[in-house]
Design a protein around this nucleic acid. Sequence first.
DNA 1: TTGTACGCGTTATCAC
DNA 2: GTGATAACGCGTACAA
Lengths: 331, 331
Amino acid sequence: MTTINEVAERAGVSTATVSRVLNGKDTVDSELVARVLTAAEELGYRPNGPARNLRRQKTPVLALIISDVENPFFTAISRGVEDVAHSAGYSVVLCNSDDDPDKERSYVSVALQERVAGILLSPTGRTSGSELLSGSRIPFVALDRPLPDAGGDTVLVDTRSAAEQATRHLVERGYRRPGCITGPRGVPTAEERLDGYLRGLRAVGQHDSERLVRRCEFRAAGARRAAQELLDTEHPPDSLLVANNVMALGVMETLAEKGLRAGDDVGMVAFDDAPWAGLLDPPLSVVAQPAYDIGTVGAQLLLDRIGERRRGNTTTTLSARLIARASSHPG
Amino acid sequence: MTTINEVAERAGVSTATVSRVLNGKDTVDSELVARVLTAAEELGYRPNGPARNLRRQKTPVLALIISDVENPFFTAISRGVEDVAHSAGYSVVLCNSDDDPDKERSYVSVALQERVAGILLSPTGRTSGSELLSGSRIPFVALDRPLPDAGGDTVLVDTRSAAEQATRHLVERGYRRPGCITGPRGVPTAEERLDGYLRGLRAVGQHDSERLVRRCEFRAAGARRAAQELLDTEHPPDSLLVANNVMALGVMETLAEKGLRAGDDVGMVAFDDAPWAGLLDPPLSVVAQPAYDIGTVGAQLLLDRIGERRRGNTTTTLSARLIARASSHPG
DNA sequence: TTGTACGCGTTATCAC
DNA sequence: GTGATAACGCGTACAA
């Protein structure tokens, strides 16, 4: 790897001048600029990032830690983040926590160690890396889920009222016993969606709902089992609110196995829209969260915080909207 | 940020000793080890990554450059890469080229500049960053698509014979005029799939196929238009081979708009399996590529190349398999 | 076993 | 406008 010294030597100038040229300082004679540029070109010179970052005491990189790359909700977020970050000259490192607090902690740790400029985190909700984060001076933003007790900005979706609305929608469409499949205990989004569901039921005068609720990981496999259990009970639900789109696929599989048809036999609304949601059999009613916007807003907040030395802790709440399709239409 | 000096001072030892302890050298008195450890703990010391990488002349990071984070095929690859990399102590930086040669080049450039340990690239196929890559000494592996003329290892899928097989499958199922929607000219995977399709047709004695082919970007929007055009011609195809799963969704939308049903009215096989493929209306026949394996194999090759100083250029070809569902069953 | 001191490749602060 | 030169934080020969 060629260094700035070799470029300087070849161009017959000092390293200082090379550095100035390469960083676009306009205080260099145009003659020298040319010499440096051609020398660098000929040598295929490429500045050493680590050295530069060390010297500058900062790295133009944002870390984005999400819980599932295979979930369209998070990939949409990541697009939002990337678009904003990229146009501000930052790279984005995408890390996959798998909803595992240990992995999350480990990624936060790496990010801090590499001295990234800022961190965007969709926390698992349990212990997580919050202590690490609040201990450091590196700016961070929590996405989708609040960070237990650390500071930082937060971008959320009002998922509670969306869940309530979806539940009432099911009842209005004629279903009488909506059930709910939500995420693990302690995960804020799981709790909120459950809470919204319960409120929705109360609002329409239903109360006995404990038996109609199941919790599982935010994955297809868990949701498949949960749906089986729920539908095998003595008084099964006649419709379901499902807490995310990956789980929804699991539930749909279970329905198919049982020869049941969503909508006609079991009403269904799931969180998150996806490109394929309208093409399923039947088309899936969803609560569409503004995932891309979560990303852009979060990234913008982070960049603000990096630039100035703002310290107040913002919370931004976006809202979701229900898209009713055939899966919430009784036969 | 606390430095190694402060730890050394607090522990009453030299920085050399601190460094040794933190890097697990066993040549340090256990008494000192303890002192250093507690000092580091109390100060919340975290080694400075850039400095460490500069000194060590390497960074424990792999760059993975793919063309679409929202495509399940690529996210599955990324999981494979991550699993292998992570268990070998490397972090993975995921970059999105959007199938844009400029973006790709720019990401390659950043990766080189940051002196990552290795690069996994799914090249756009056009100029791309191959010159940059072959100019550098950094090991790299091409995934899914070969790299124009650079060296490096390559992991491919035998997508040509898979396309041929899929085409013959359509004919065997009774479709008489299979058409093909493939990717942009010059993209290897697009060309191969088209080629396989043509071979398949010839194998069953069909030749007039030029008019049954459309090219577009590997996206839903392009595929939507392509399908419209194709179905609006005087002698439209009665079935389609579609080159990836994102395009398949676009085609399905078009069919729905036209009141056509896949399978019954227009046969369809698409590349890439996805969690939702079997739940569409109708269930989608697919050519399932071993995406996860592409990732693990590629990552392993890269790690090998990083470890030893192997220079031979490997090409690994994995095979795909057809999963026939209802969309390739005529009514 | 431990400490001193140098260098990794840059950028920024000085003098000139 | 340009060039020495001193850091940035760490790892490691080398000396003790």
